[in-house]
């Protein structure tokens, strides 16, 4: 019993030590661009102040996006987007909380490009869906990791209502391009 306790204590200690050694990478100015393509109109919006953090030890990967920071070519479109479609006053942020599924296969200390699968909860407009998407991590140096992914979401999955009168101009599936440059967090 004594031995067992000691072993367990050691494991616990190890776990605790491990978690304090976690490597965190963060950014406050990641890019997210989305595209809506229809025969009538192509719409593009850019957000250059995306918050993201990655824990290379546990594979945890999170995003927080301020919806009002999406910039459109037409100011009126931006106003409609916030006021009518994603209702930014009510739902100011979109978040993603998930994991890099294959983080054990990626050597975050060794420069190179790695395929990654990310799985987790994406919340937009107050609606959460589980998504699983692929992308790449590019380890640039000991301080910098670049994350890239392109995927699509369905507008209706997030309960975003598009009025009939503009439905020809707004696609049902929106392409989302994520581009973040994460910097190692200094302790």
């Amino acid at each position: 019993m004594k031995t067992l306790t000691s072993i367990l204590t050691a494991i616990t200690l190890l776990l605790a030590v491990n978690s304090t050694h976690a490597q965190r990478y963060v950014t406050k100015n990641g890019n997210i661009t989305f595209f809506s393509e229809t025969p009538v109109e192509n719409i593009r919006a850019v957000n250059k102040s995306v918050n993201s953090a990655l824990d290379t030890e546990t594979g945890q990967f999170v995003f927080k996006v301020l919806m009002k920071s999406f910039q459109f070519k037409k100011a009126l479109m931006q106003e409609d987007f916030n006021e009518n479609y994603v209702e930014s006053d009510q739902y100011p942020n979109s978040t993603f909380q998930g994991n890099v599924v294959n983080h054990k296969d990626i050597d975050f200390d060794k420069p190179g490009t790695y395929e990654a699968t990310v799985k987790g909860d994406l919340t937009i407009h107050g609606v959460t869906n589980q998504i699983k998407e692929t992308g790449t991590f590019k380890v640039v140096d000991k301080e910098t990791i670049k994350g890239n992914s392109t995927f699509t979401i369905k507008v209706e999955d997030y309960d975003i209502k598009i009025p009939k009168i503009v439905s020809e101009k707004i696609a049902e599936e929106i392409e989302i391009k994520v581009d973040v440059t994460l910097k190692k967090l200094k302790k």
């Binding site: 976690a22 918050n51 953090a53 999170v62 995003f63 967090l185």
Partner: peptide, 17 residues
Amino acid sequence: SFWGVQSSAQDLMDLVE
């Protein structure tokens, strides 16, 4: 230690506040 693991998930969200 569990509390530590728990809070690390929360920590990561705090980093993107």
